[in-house]
C-alpha cells in the first residue's frame, strides 16, 4: 500500500500560546512532540503532547475539538500564522502530520479577533456567531405549518447555490484570517443561502438588516476585500457570498 512508513517518526518543536484565563496575560511556551508519524492528525499530535505533559505533572494544552471529522466546526487554531494550518479546504482536525517534516517548528495560536475573547489557551468564545444567526438567520416557519416539500419548486441551480453557501461550519476561521476581524463571509453565507431560495424571500429585507446590525454590535469589522477569509475557509465558501450580502443589503436599503 502507498504511504506506509510506519516506523519513521518525527520530532517537532511546538511554540504554543498559553493563557490561563480571559483576563490573564498570555505567553508562548515551547514543547517537544516526539514519536509522531505521518498518519497522526494534528490534534492527535497534540493529544500525544498532552499525555506527556500530564505525566510530567504539567497542565495540558487546552484546545477546542469534538467531531474530529471536519464538520462540527469546533476546532480552531492558527498554525504558523494560518487559521486551520493553511491546507486547502481542511480543518485542524483533518490536517495530518504528513504535511510536516522532522524537526519543524510549529507556532500554534488561538483565533485572534476582537469579537472572540480568549477563554483559555487555544479556546475562544465564539458566541457572537450565534448572536448573528439569532438576529435573522432563519425562516420563521412554525413547526407543522409547512406545505408539501415539492409544492415549492427550486431549480437545481438555486438549490446547489444555496447548498454551497450552507456548507459553512461556523468555525470562525474567516474572522481569524481577516485583518479587520470581519464576519462577513459567515454572515454572507447565511444571507445568500436564504436569499437564493423562495422560502427566504418574505423576510429577506429584515434579515439582512438585522444580521448586519448584529455583526457590528458584536465587534466584528468590515470587509475590505483581502479575501483571506476564502483562503482560510475549510469548506471553501466563496467570497461571492460577501458580494451577495452587500447586494442584499443595498436592496434592503433602497426598496
Amino acid at each position: 500500500m502507498s504511504g506506509q512508513n510506519e516506523h519513521r517518526t518525527m520530532t517537532l518543536k511546538l511554540i504554543v500560546w498559553r493563557q490561563k484565563g480571559p483576563k490573564e496575560a498570555g505567553r508562548f511556551e515551547t514543547y517537544v512532540a516526539r514519536g509522531i508519524t505521518e498518519h497522526h492528525s494534528f490534534l492527535e499530535m497534540l493529544d500525544v503532547v498532552n499525555q506527556d505533559l500530564i505525566k510530567e505533572g504539567q497542565e495540558p494544552i487546552t484546545f477546542d475539538h469534538d467531531c474530529r471529522e471536519g464538520i462540527c466546526g469546533t476546532c480552531s487554531q492558527v498554525i504558523n500564522g494560518q487559521p486551520h494550518g493553511g491546507q486547502t479546504r481542511t480543518t485542524v482536525c483533518q490536517l495530518h502530520m504528513r504535511k510536516f517534516k522532522d524537526g519543524d517548528a510549529i507556532y500554534i495560536e488561538p483565533w485572534r479577533a476582537r469579537a472572540f475573547p480568549i477563554l483559555r489557551d487555544l479556546v475562544v468564545d465564539r458566541s457572537a456567531l450565534d448572536r448573528i444567526i439569532q438576529a435573522g438567520g432563519y425562516t420563521s416557519v412554525r413547526t407543522g405549518a409547512a406545505p408539501d416539500g415539492n409544492s415549492i419548486l427550486i431549480s437545481k441551480e438555486a438549490a446547489d447555490y444555496a447548498m454551497d453557501a450552507a456548507e459553512c461550519i461556523g468555525c470562525g476561521a474567516c474572522v481569524a484570517a481577516c485583518p479587520n476581524g470581519a464576519a462577513m463571509l459567515f454572515t454572507g453565507a447565511k444571507v445568500s443561502q436564504l436569499a437564493a431560495l423562495p422560502q427566504g424571500q418574505v423576510e429577506a429585507r429584515e434579515r439582512v438588516n438585522s444580521m448586519i446590525e448584529a455583526m457590528q454590535e458584536c465587534g466584528f469589522g468590515n470587509c475590505t476585500n483581502h479575501y483571506e477569509c476564502q483562503a482560510a475557509c475549510p469548506k471553501g465558501i466563496d467570497v461571492k457570498f460577501i458580494a451577495r450580502l452587500n447586494r442584499e443589503y443595498l436592496k434592503a436599503l433602497m426598496f
Binding site: 425562516t139 409547512a146 427550486i154 431549480s155 450552507a166
Partner: peptide, 14 residues
C-alpha cells in the same frame, strides 16, 4: 416539509 420550509437545501433534480 418542515425542513424544506426552513430553507434546508435538499438535493433537487433539474
Amino acid at each position: 416539509d418542515q425542513c424544506v420550509a426552513q430553507g434546508v437545501p435538499f438535493a433537487r433534480d433539474y
